[in-house]
């Protein structure tokens, strides 16, 4: 955590979540841990945001969203060579139909904060180490 990659700190996380309340609390919790958090209200915004932000070490992805849902976002993401390897953790209320997305895990709502932070730490470290290595 907090390690730098190519002069940039390797601690960006992208949250793609339409529910503002969840979006904000996730952001707050992660920022309190020192992550640089970017938020998008739906898949489309997320995709648009990705080139403008530091490459995230983790994407927290909601499934049920307007405009572009989580599945569509994951699909689009997998087609981008540079982005396809970014770890994606799904944040959902029901854990349904999450299997179709090649994710690193599922966080069930209401989200257990400890689990969230553990996952964020785990994947970001792996990602950043991988990049460095």
């Amino acid at each position: 955590m907090n390690s730098e990659v190519n002069g940039k700190r390797c601690n960006s996380i992208l949250i793609v979540e339409d529910e503002k309340g969840i979006q904000e609390i996730l952001k707050m919790a992660l920022e309190m841990e020192g992550y640089q958090v970017f938020t998008a209200d739906n898949g489309k915004e997320g995709l648009e945001l990705l080139p403008k932000m530091p490459t995230p070490c983790l994407i927290l992805l909601d499934l049920m969203m307007p405009v572009m849902n989580g599945w569509e976002f994951a699909e689009a993401l997998s087609k981008e060579m540079t982005l396809a390897t970014i770890p994606v953790v799904i944040v959902t209320a029901y854990g349904e139909r999450a299997e179709s997305i090649p994710s690193k895990g599922v966080l069930k709502k209401p989200i257990d904060l400890d689990a969230l932070l553990r996952i964020a730490n785990e994947w970001c470290e792996q990602w950043c180490n991988g990049k460095r290595g």
């Binding site: 969840i22 609390i25 919790a29 309190m32 209320a93 709502k109 209401p110 989200i111």
Partner: peptide, 16 residues
């Protein structure tokens, strides 16, 4: 359930 998730998280955060 929708508002319950942020409430739960906020409480967790508060506890933390």
């Amino acid at each position: 359930k929708t508002p319950l998730t942020p409430i739960s998280m906020q409480l967790q955060l508060l506890e933390r």
